[in-house]
Simulated scan of single mutants.
Amino acid sequence: EYKEEFEKRGLEFFYTLIDDAVARVIRSKGGFIWACKNYDGDVMSDMVSTAFGSLAMMTSVLVSPDGKYEYEAAHGTVTRHYYKYLKGEETSTNPMATIFAWSGALRKRGEMDSLPGLVNFGNKLEEACFQTLNEGIVTKDLAGLMEGVTPQPKTSAGFIAAIRERLEKLLA
């Protein structure tokens, strides 16, 4: 039903199997929209993110046909780290996908309710995250993936504190 409109806009639609889609994504340089059912999206995002180093860096936005949005981290829980946390042990769990799920949700809520301050907060939170990463401040899972900067691995709490410090400066 959308064929004519797609052609007018220069868009190509085709159906493919999940394994082919993952291979195409890994080989691509972007420039496409990847629409899929929730389960397929979960499987595909897990495979693709692992190929690029860390599942903890991917967020997901689910959009319903009636225009509702759900922002989420594209990965599951890190049970092993949670049990360590419950015992009072230090962890180095990467919270980026969760933070970006929140920043995206806050920004969308701000757009929907015409609240520019909330949109700005979402943008600044993401900017603080990028600043932190670009300075080499990371959790242990990312330390081996850093290029062009000397990694400074932190615990979960230390990493979040570094993001907060930069966010406070951006919001001042």
Rank of each mutant, 00 (worst) to 15 (best):
K124W: 05
A128R: 01
F121W: 13
Q131C: 04
L125H: 00
I160H: 05
N120W: 00
K124T: 13
Q131F: 07
V149R: 08
N123P: 02
N134C: 08
P116T: 09
F159K: 10
V138W: 00
D113W: 11
D113C: 02
L145R: 07
L142K: 04
G158Y: 12
A128Q: 03
L118H: 09
C129M: 10
F159D: 07
C129Q: 14
A143D: 09
T155H: 11
G158D: 07
A161L: 09
G122V: 00
A143Q: 15
G144Q: 07
G122K: 00
L142G: 02
Q131S: 11
Q152H: 11
E135H: 11
A143V: 10
G144K: 14
V149P: 01
E126G: 14
M146A: 03
A161T: 09
F130W: 05
V138E: 01
G122T: 01
L133I: 15
G144Y: 14
L115V: 04
A143W: 09
L133S: 01
L133N: 00
A157E: 05
T150D: 14
G136F: 05
A157H: 12
V138S: 02
D113L: 06
A128F: 10
S114K: 11
T155D: 06
L118K: 08
T139K: 00
T155P: 04
G144M: 09
L125K: 00
N123G: 06
K154C: 04
S114C: 07
T150C: 13
N120V: 00
E135N: 11
K140N: 12
N120S: 02
M146T: 05
K140Q: 13
I160G: 13
G148L: 06
M146S: 05
L118A: 07
G122E: 01
D113Q: 02
A161C: 14
N134Q: 09
M146E: 15
P153V: 11
I160V: 08
Q152V: 13
S114T: 11
I137C: 06
I160A: 13
L145W: 05
L115I: 08
L142P: 03
N123K: 13
I160K: 03
L142A: 05
P153L: 15
M146C: 14
G148W: 12
V119Q: 05
V119Y: 13
D141H: 08
L145I: 04
F121Q: 03
E127F: 00
K154I: 02
T155A: 08
P153N: 15
L133H: 03
N123L: 08
S114Q: 03
F121R: 06
F130T: 03
K124Q: 12
G144E: 07
G158H: 12
I137S: 00
P116I: 14
T155M: 04
D141K: 11
L115T: 08
P151M: 04
V119A: 07
N134G: 08
T132I: 13
Q131P: 01
G136Q: 11
G158L: 10
G144F: 13
V138F: 03
Q152F: 05
G136M: 07
A157R: 14
T132P: 02
L145G: 05
N120Q: 06
A161P: 02
K124N: 11
Q131Y: 06
A157S: 04
I137V: 12
L115A: 13
T155Y: 15
T155R: 15
P151D: 06
K124E: 10
Q131T: 10
D141W: 02
K124H: 04
M146N: 15
Q152N: 08
G122A: 01
Q152W: 07
P116E: 12
K140E: 07
V149N: 05
D113N: 15
P151I: 14
A161Y: 02
